[in-house]
Design a protein around this nucleic acid. Structure first.
Length: 570
RNA sequence: UCGGGGAUGGUGUAAUUGGCAACACAGCUGGUUCUGGUCCAGUCGUUGGGGGUUCGAGUCCUCCUCCCCGAACCA
């Protein structure tokens, strides 16, 4: 195994795709050249599944000093739109990749047309006058051979004439198609005279009204690869059967360079989420979530808004590698990459999301009868001294987390309770002397006395406390809102039981908490837009509201785990 | 039903191509710690089933089982 200079093992370079490339390099198939591409259809937004394909294609090119282009596979004007083109370019850039070139399949419509005539001349393509239902029936089924179209042996000149008139808009939509003449008996359904062109009276977002006929995916994809000089054309497993067709087209075209070839790999699936355009779209359209960038979604826009660092996504994609095995990765693995990155880079701040008043009863009072204010110096990131420190206001009147006080502490509970001493992070050791309750028995105010000798948090006599809790000075606290996210779907495989992912939607996937208290230096000097609220987790500032924080991911929480075990799981 | 692909711990990926099954996540135990975080140490546990070849099989042969994909003028 290869190792980098720090001695950490790098990911194996022996996956089947790299092995293929290695053997091509050795045989000189493409003169040692490597060119890949990322070919999205501009009909939706990029998601984590695309990220895997993106990282793979770009990494492969980089490793071989090759080229990776972005190509929009825009052959179906009915579903595609320019807005997606823009969004995809932006998401790709955010993920950290800049394509060597940006192309569009629609750039090749003229060449594709010319090649189609070439195939007609060669007797390898014909115009079929039947409708789609008829063609579909004739195609046969699994184990049942297809039957030939009655138009299958039209003359070259008739085919040419008809095809040109299709192009010129003489025929209504859906009335005729151009088909490749291959083999109606093939066991591979893709080879039973597949459609190359269909008539569509639709404006294309780039070519406008120039064309009345549009190429299908199969007729455009490999040809686009060939035109661009792609060597290794990667796609997902469900295209395996299309590989023979990909090859057939290229084999029958007058190409002057070695033809690219297609290799399939397993797409990325994650637990507790969906990565299918159709299902994502359904969620958005049914208003189950706020939109394409709702932080609960696995779209790149959403992950960015939620605070996922692009580097963590890249690391994750590289780590999981490629294979041909259908699998579903645990979302926890992605999260662990997010935590690792954020632990190193996110500055620490203090925030109290469910505030409970804490009064230090022996804290000094100034001449106006108000608690004396002082400033405590706290590390911005204990993992990174270079991030420095900040001054945080402190007094005898603080907010602490409701969960950090128990009138009646359960076993193993280390935090504040009557008679207990804890540390206020970066502040003092305080001992609880009691609490005020309302008529319903709810604790409304916790009282403590502090030890003035413990400024900064350390006791000169060396005594230890079992817990350190976070706090926000009450008179300088900023008010704001926090959104806590859980899995979007409760089931590991959404829709596994009923076939409908929506049935497994987690009703508690988002909890919005108002009235949170933040320390005054909140959004200042952040690396990117993510902070760690100490003991709570990583949070991303909302792009539109500086007082609104999305929880990117929580911290590992031993106490929560312990509690879960004590209450019998779930 | 036919064709194509796949199966390694709880999960995912690897194994010098026939030679001690490893890495990570998750779990568990302990240590460190001014975050019940981080970090450190330890631990748990794997080749779908049967047969065969071999000194030796996750790897080769054979039979079986199970899973995924494919019958849009979608991609």
């Amino acid at each position: 195994m290869v190792a980098d200079e720090e001695g950490k093992p790098l990911k194996s370079r022996t996956d089947f795709i790299r092995a293929l490339m290695e053997s091509d390099a050795q045989s000189g198939r493409f003169d040692g050249r490597v060119q890949t591409r990322f070919p999205p259809e501009p009909n939706g937004y990029l998601h984590i599944g695309h990220a895997k394909a993106i990282c793979l294609n770009f990494a492969l090119a980089q490793e071989s000093n090759g080229i990776c282009n972005l190509r929009f596979d825009d052959t179906n004007p009915e579903t595609e739109d320019e807005q997606y083109v823009e969004a995809i370019i932006e998401d790709l850039r955010w993920l950290g990749f800049s394509p060597d070139d940006i192309h569009h399949s629609s750039d090749y419509f003229p060449q594709l047309y010319e090649w189609a005539e070439h195939l007609i001349h060669a007797g390898l393509a014909y115009v079929d006058d039947q409708d789609s239902g008829t063609i579909s029936k004739q195609r046969g089924g699994f184990g049942k051979p297809g039957v030939s179209s009655p138009f299958r042996n039209r003359s070259v000149s008739e085919n040419l004439d008809l095809f040109r008139r299709m192009r010129d808009g003489e025929f209504p939509e859906g009335s005729r198609v151009l088909r490749a003449l291959i083999d109606m008996q093939s066991e591979n359904m893709q080879l039973r005279d597949p459609i190359m062109y269909r008539i569509r009276a639709v404006r294309h977002h780039r070519t406008g009204g120039d064309w009345n006929i549009y190429p299908t995916y199969d007729w455009a994809h490999g040809q686009g690869d060939a035109i661009e000089g792609v060597t290794h054309s990667l796609c997902s497993l469900e295209f395996s059967d299309n590989r023979a067709l990909y090859k057939w087209f290229l084999d029958n075209l007058p190409l002057d360079a070695p033809a690219p070839y297609q290799t399939e790999f397993a797409r990325l699936e994650l637990t507790h989420t969906v990565t299918s355009k159709r299902k994502l779209k359904e969620l958005v359209e049914r208003d189950e979530i706020d939109g394409w960038d709702d932080p609960r979604l696995p779209t790149l826009k959403a992950l960015r808004r939620r605070g996922y660092p692009p580097s963590a996504i890249r690391e994750f994609c590289s780590f999981i590698g490629v294979s041909r095995t259908n699998s579903r990765h645990a979302i926890e693995l992605l999260e662990s990459f997010v935590r690792t990155e954020l632990n190193a880079t996110a500055q620490r701040r203090m925030a109290v999301i469910r505030p409970l008043k804490l009064i230090i009863t022996n804290w000094p009072i100034d001449d106006d009868g108000r608690p004396v204010l002082e400033y405590r110096s706290l590390m911005n990131n204990p993992e990174n001294d270079a991030d420095g420190t900040r001054e945080v206001p402190f007094s005898g009147e603080l907010w602490i987390e409701d969960d950090d006080y128990r009138q009646d502490p359960p076993p193993k509970y280390f935090r504040l309770a009557p008679g207990r001493e804890v540390r206020l992070r970066g502040g003092y050791l305080v001992t609880c002397t009691g609490a005020i309750q309302d008529d319903d028995g709810n604790v409304t105010e916790v009282h403590c006395i502090y030890d003035p000798l413990t400024a900064g948090g350390a006791a000169p006599d060396g005594r230890k406390v079992k817990a350190t809790i976070h706090w926000v000075e009450a008179n300088h606290a900023l008010d704001g809102t926090v959104a806590l996210y859980e899995r979007l779907f409760t089931a590991e495989v959404p829709g596994e039981k009923t076939g409908e992912p929506i049935d497994d939607l987690n009703p508690a996937s988002r909890e919005i908490i108002n009235g949170c208290k933040f320390e005054p230096e909140l959004g200042e000097h952040l690396n990117d837009h993510v902070v760690q609220f100490e003991r709570l987790g990583y949070f991303a500032v909302d792009q539109d509201d500086p007082r609104f924080f999305h929880r990117t991911v929580g911290l590992r929480d031993e106490w929560a785990k312990l509690q879960r075990r004590q209450t019998g799981g779930s």
